[in-house]
Amino acid sequence: MEQGFIPPYFLDVPELLASLPKQKSPKTGYRGVVGGGTDLYVQRPEKLTRTEVQLVSDKVKLNGIRIKGKNCRIGASSTVTDLLESEDMNRIFPNLKQHLKLVSSTQIRNMGTVAGNLANASPIGDLTVFLLALNASVTLKGKNKHNLPLREFYLGYKKLNKDPDDIIKSIEFPLPGKATRFNFEKVCKRTHLDIASVNSAIQISETEGRIRSVSLAAGGIGPIPAYLAGTCQFLKGKKLSAKTVKSAAKMLTGEISPISDARGSASYKSLLLRQLFFAHFLELFPDQFDLPDFL
């Protein structure tokens, strides 16, 4: 402020905010939910200024990241920055900072919420793909409260398996076991502050050279952010070898249906997903694999 970069009225902002009248929930159910608004206000600014909305980002009950027993619970309105700053999350995912730096920008990370990312149903939602690989589930509340595996949340392009009145309360995922490794990959035209052409996350555990469990998710390769069940099933129990990875990569391409658009041609997206699949193994098992092993 002294240097003149920030205008003095910034000092009064907290007071100004506090003096605003408390917003009442609209009576007509839960339509018009706004989390951080980073998607809604970009897509439909003119419409939104004319409709009544329900702001949920500051709701205490919808915030907080907590470990409870063998699960982690993320409040629906947690922002990406909340994830980044959570000690628990950083302990569970040592590369979290590196991965989440690929998601939007500081300003958007400070505002955009996890529930907003999930409910957006964008086929390339980064947090969605991240959470799909963690076998996350969502807790919804409308007429009644219920819990649904995230991989059952998407029915089709931008179509959610939920009542329009349901709001997301929280997201839960089981804590990964000791031998479990996790990786997230994203490629776009521009590395930072861009939307993925294809993104992918994997959670894999290996003991004695065998794949014990694996969850693989990817975005940008179909109408919904996809859990790639067929490939996971193929990999489970197999020996962790270049041959296995190569065979699985062939399966992968059969499981997806990318389209050509501004983020790339369908054939590119297919190839890219295969490459990101390879990248998972190169990143997670660097002593075991090198790129030429897969080619």
């Binding site: 035209k189 930072h192 501004a262």
Partner: peptide, 28 residues
Amino acid sequence: TMEEVLYNPEGKLLSNALSTYKIPDIYS
């Protein structure tokens, strides 16, 4: 490198916003 002006076959601009048209940022 990354700046790609794209039109569809009907002549409509596809790279029509900052989300689909990318110029180099400080990282690139």
